[in-house]
Design a protein around this nucleic acid. Structure first.
Lengths: 234, 234
DNA sequence: TAGATTGTTAATCGATTAACAATC
DNA sequence: TAGATTGTTAATCGATTAACAATC
């Protein structure tokens, strides 16, 4: 129907980072940036930045570079940050509360509408202006309110079962902090897994490797600062 | 000096997940698994699993597969989970406390030795059996106790400054939850960034893309269940 | 032994980098 | 205009998949 160029996940994962750096530039009053200067700031390559942005359109101007506020807006729109997807949070324990307090859902495209837990000591208490609801009323709630996304901060055991309920009620986006992978089920849903334990083990692995001499290659490809003869790195 | 085969970051990032699935198999009493069966469980490919494991050695046995408990041990050792790296946590706010409560440092190669904060209301209180120390004593502490790693749960503003102190005192591993990238400074340190805001924006982007028809390609390459003619997918 | 499944090499695929014509 | 910097194509590099001989 539309142009429908397939965007690779590698590109998508870089977009929030571009947005973060550009927003910072914008907030410090910078109006213009070239792919080269941005690449230097971000530790990536000018070529990659231009390739990535051109997946979505020609946002720059030859001989000038990119207009920072305009590019911010474009990225915001590509990311869908003005979507206001309705979302519920499952699990109001330590992690759930931290996520609630730490993450700015509104400016990242989501509108948090309810919080659920199974712990009677927590149900009924107030968190961020929302009364914690009993998870046994989840299905009823979802069928009437039709949330589009869910944040899972539950223990592994209940997570799978709760995810099934949510999916059954039409939830098609999952931000999953539970210790299991949601991605393989529900083929028409999208999910983003945040595995803190895996992340910590990765750090451990890298520290161990850098102690021994069994080296791990630096992230994608080491950025060679100023070692090139091409135009891009004048 | 040693074999020193360079391991790519793509492989390293898959190791914790292998470990997670194998531990689960082990705990449910499974003693043996083939790359094919494991691949099916994990939604990856048998070929990739064998390639990945063979970066570190031949842990399997032709005609039999992999011994689950043995492979768990091997992975644990590759990941360095028995390292007991000493670590300090910076920032005992919501996020810091959640990380502290939610993550099992001990079984992931770390030993948490101290918690720091700058908020007078928090300093002196007890968290997980540790008294929260004043961040102004951080340097002093680090010079005498020599922690090897740090968990950063600070706001962006203080994070950079605190990271400099830590690096100056010899800390060479960073688990960074702050809203900035630590990775580019400190070339001889390793760091693992956990950017919750970026992660949420990625989800938003994927939901938006799956609503429109501008598709995002499924993660690495879609696992084609049973669509192959090769031996691996009999 | 025959069957199964690994370790490993070769082929394919995709992502990153380089280069340069277009153009502001 | 001349200089700068993009958009885009081509070349390179790396990661994944396929295939199969080795071998348990």
């Amino acid at each position: 129907m539309s142009k429908s160029k397939k965007i690779s996940m590698s590109v998508v994962r870089r977009l929030p980072r571009y947005y973060r750096f550009l927003l910072e530039l914008k907030n410090s009053g910078v109006y213009r940036v070239s792919s080269q200067v941005l690449a230097e700031k971000m530790g990536s390559s000018a070529s990659q930045i231009r390739q990535d942005l051109n997946c979505f359109g020609g946002f720059g101007q030859q001989g000038y570079g990119y207009d920072v506020p305009k590019l911010c807006d474009e990225l915001s729109s590509i990311l869908g940050l003005d979507s206001h997807y309705s979302a519920v949070l499952l699990g109001a324990g330590n992690l759930g509360r931290a996520v609630l307090n730490h993450v700015d859902f509104a400016s990242r495209g989501f509108r948090l509408t309810a919080v659920f837990d199974s712990n009677p000591a927590i149900i009924g208490t107030l968190i961020n202006g929302m009364t914690v609801l009993d998870v046994s009323t989840l299905e009823e709630y979802c069928l009437s309110e039709k949330p589009q996304a869910a944040v899972l901060c539950l223990p592994k055991e209940s997570a799978e079962q709760v995810a099934d309920i949510l999916y059954g009620c039409g939830v098609r986006g999952f931000w999953n902090f539970s210790h299991y992978d949601i991605s393989m089920k529900y083929s028409d849903a999208v999910s983003e897994n945040v595995h803190l334990n895996d992340s910590l083990m990765t750090l451990c692995c890298c520290m161990t490797a850098s102690n021994e001499d069994s080296q791990i290659k630096p992230n994608p490809v080491k950025h060679r600062r100023g070692a090139s003869k091409t135009k891009d790195k004048a």
